[in-house]
Design a binder for these strands. Structure first.
Lengths: 192, 192
DNA sequence: CGGTCTCTTGACGGAGTTCAAAGCTAGTGG
DNA sequence: CCACTAGCTTTGAACTCCGTCAAGAGACCG
């Protein structure tokens, strides 16, 4: 429980004083999660946005055959939610689960809107976050199409070196759009 | 050259009067494009964001083998840019080309920032646009992984029924991540 | 009406899948 | 603190969808 980490995250992108921060930080709620806890359930309403102070989450979709498709990982100092449900008040398209014990700060949609209205700087922060996330996801689409499985894995290693240790292989495989067995063969090759 | 279309786009998402609009619309520039014109060049600076009044553009990446990877299409009433270059002042990752004669409104990065600062409503608009675009792109990533070529094409037909008429097949194939020959075979099957 | 660009069709090949079984590892409870 | 179990990873053999390469048919434009 350390609000400073959230403050630092904001200050890394916008100019905001500790006093201003204290005015609205009360709208955030602190929450702890155990590994494997489900934070957002698929096909249910989710009206909460999370900031991860510590730990690791992943966003996923359950396919018809019951298998899990990993959409993205998010670790400490990142924001996470099923934004579709958050913004449209429809049921969530994806689920979110903890891969490690986590400490997070949550904010409801109503409070999110309040903050955006009362603190234009904060709206700027969220605009910056979304535009960056959007650009990164477009780059990801481009990479998905232009790289084979081997390159995708190498790319993943470069982009998230720490996650290789923190995430089980079958979830990395899912994120890369290949089977655990294929990833295993790729890793075997790389060692040689 | 019809500013009303831009105004209507804004009013569909935020409450803004014609008078307010007139105050800053002068920061936008009108521009016409011929089919095949290049609006943004890969690996060059792009400090402009475009609103498409009429026509059709596509965002693409040139691969090592010289082939084009289509990242997305954008038609009338949508916004388009290489946002990476726009926001970071680095060279563009993607290029943008006209698929039809176009009429667009452009705004420079500097003017974009001015508008965001002076008109919080406009910052809200852009936040809404980016968050929606981000969510849609995440859904696309999910679909890329969970659907085979046939389903991806069906999905494309549902999502952009008009584009099938307006975009050559080899660019649709590229957008779907398959070869023109594969798309041709898929279409043949569908007819049967 | 000639040339170029686009779409179709065919034969073959390969990256990654499918299915299955055998190791391995970490977490749990006695 | 060890033993057991469930879940993860590795490995093998056969298969499949889509890619590759290539050639021909069709469409569009000057």
């Amino acid at each position: 429980m350390n609000k400073k980490i959230l403050l630092q995250n904001l200050q890394s992108k916008i100019a905001i004083s500790e006093d201003e921060f204290d005015e609205f930080v009360t709208l955030f709620q602190y929450k702890e999660l155990k590994k494997k806890d489900i934070l957002v359930e698929e096909n249910r309403l989710n009206d909460t946005l999370y900031f991860i102070e510590k730990g690791l989450l992943f966003l996923y979709k359950t396919l018809e055959n019951g298998e899990i498709q990993v959409i993205q990982f998010a670790k400490e100092n990142y924001w996470m939610s099923d934004l579709y449900s958050f913004f449209t008040s429809s049921n969530a398209l994806f689920g979110i689960q903890a891969l490690e014990d986590c400490q997070v700060w949550s904010i409801s949609m109503a409070n999110f809107e309040t903050i955006c209205l009362q603190y234009p700087k904060m709206e700027t922060l969220f605009r910056l976050n979304f535009q960056t996330a959007y650009v990164n996801t477009l780059i990801r689409v481009s990479d998905i199409y232009s790289e084979d499985a081997q390159s995708k894995y190498n790319h993943f290693l470069k982009q998230f070196p720490d996650l290789v240790q923190r995430v089980p292989q079958y979830l990395i495989a899912s994120y890369l759009g290949i089977l655990p067995s294929s990833l295993s063969r790729i890793r075997k090759k790389s060692k040689a």
